[in-house]
Nucleic acid binder design. Sequence first.
DNA 1: CGGCTGTGAATTGTATACAGTATGCAATTT
DNA 2: AAATTGCATACTGTATACAATTCACAGCCG
Lengths: 222, 222
Amino acid sequence: MQFSPHLADRPNLSDSLADAVRTMIVDGRLAAGARVNEVHLAAALKVSRTPLREALSRLTAEGALQAVPRRGYFVAPLTASELEQLYDLRPLLDPEALRLAGVPGPGRLQTLDAINARLARESTPEKIVALDDVWHLELIAGCPNRVLVEMIEQIMRRTRRYELALMREAPPAEKAVDHHAAVTAALRSGDLDGACAALKANLTHGREPLLAWLRDRERRRA
Amino acid sequence: MQFSPHLADRPNLSDSLADAVRTMIVDGRLAAGARVNEVHLAAALKVSRTPLREALSRLTAEGALQAVPRRGYFVAPLTASELEQLYDLRPLLDPEALRLAGVPGPGRLQTLDAINARLARESTPEKIVALDDVWHLELIAGCPNRVLVEMIEQIMRRTRRYELALMREAPPAEKAVDHHAAVTAALRSGDLDGACAALKANLTHGREPLLAWLRDRERRRA
DNA sequence: CGGCTGTGAATTGTATACAGTATGCAATTT
DNA sequence: AAATTGCATACTGTATACAATTCACAGCCG
């Protein structure tokens, strides 16, 4: 065969750096609002500034960083307002993706339950958040509109550090396990509309505790 | 005053280049599917490769380019499938944004009609597409969910070169002027639901001619 | 004649060097 | 003592240089 198109090609440094820095931001090693010093960061990662800057450039497009022309890159601050806007979009996008995907086959339903079971046992914030996202992506894996799925992934990336920041300070609140079970139950009985409604409820919930915490934190700093 | 925060600061080269290259892609000077030669392009734009690569990196995140690790950047091809997916999202997102924005004040309604009037007189593809986008953005300018508005803008940028490519080959089909008028009419009578429905109809229409043209083009090349 | 292999040019990836701008501190003035 | 100016330093923006990889084509072998 002539092409194995964009298949698992080993990434270049810039790509790897984007992942590395994104991780540093998500898990707090680069604090929200902090200024990014290119020289220090490049030295710490043992690379030159050129590929690092390409990575920072991409992260800016993703919304994880903000660029101010002659002052440099800053880690985007955590604001209640942004989180609220992000959270409001999921109940709009996810049910539509599920509707387009249709009722999953039995294999996928089994996978979903397996993920949910692991989610119930997990206790570290990182694992919980990651597994929850995996579950939601698996749910809509059959959605033919890949652009829609990409948008949902984009929102996941942007909300992840909010969720981790909360879970580190406050103990992990109630988990979404039961909501997830309600969705798969509806799907098993072939009730797509019911599943979409349950999914919407899942996404609408869990919103309030996070927002309350953030608003409180903003008040305290003002 | 100490700060005029990120206000209209003169952009750096990378930013300007991103705009320049995006324009080249949108209006076809960089053909869909073409490989981007960094050396040639940098020479043509009279800059060095470093800021150009940062710009290309960002355009990749926007979906205008695709990066293949050791082979370089390629202009993303025009596919009926992607366009279909993009067009399917607007009827989902725009009405929601309008609902959140609420009925606009009389000033904004007047602005909308003015834009629509100019749209009716315009005849060049570039102007028509640009004004149509301006109208839709003005319609939802009051939407408090800025992330949602950004997503709509993102879709506009990605669909623009499809629309221009079509309009250059085929003469501009029917315009959306009447649909727009229906939306503002509903809004003037305070009927938000009706306006959302009319908007949805506007966005669902105009889809078919473009898709038909693209599919035909793809068949001819196969 | 078709497919393989090696070699040189072209192209991308990364590092380094240099120039322009911002930032913080100290000296100076009011 | 507060404000302001000037200067040294640190940092970002851009260019250039070098290394590593890919690509195209010629020649060779089956």
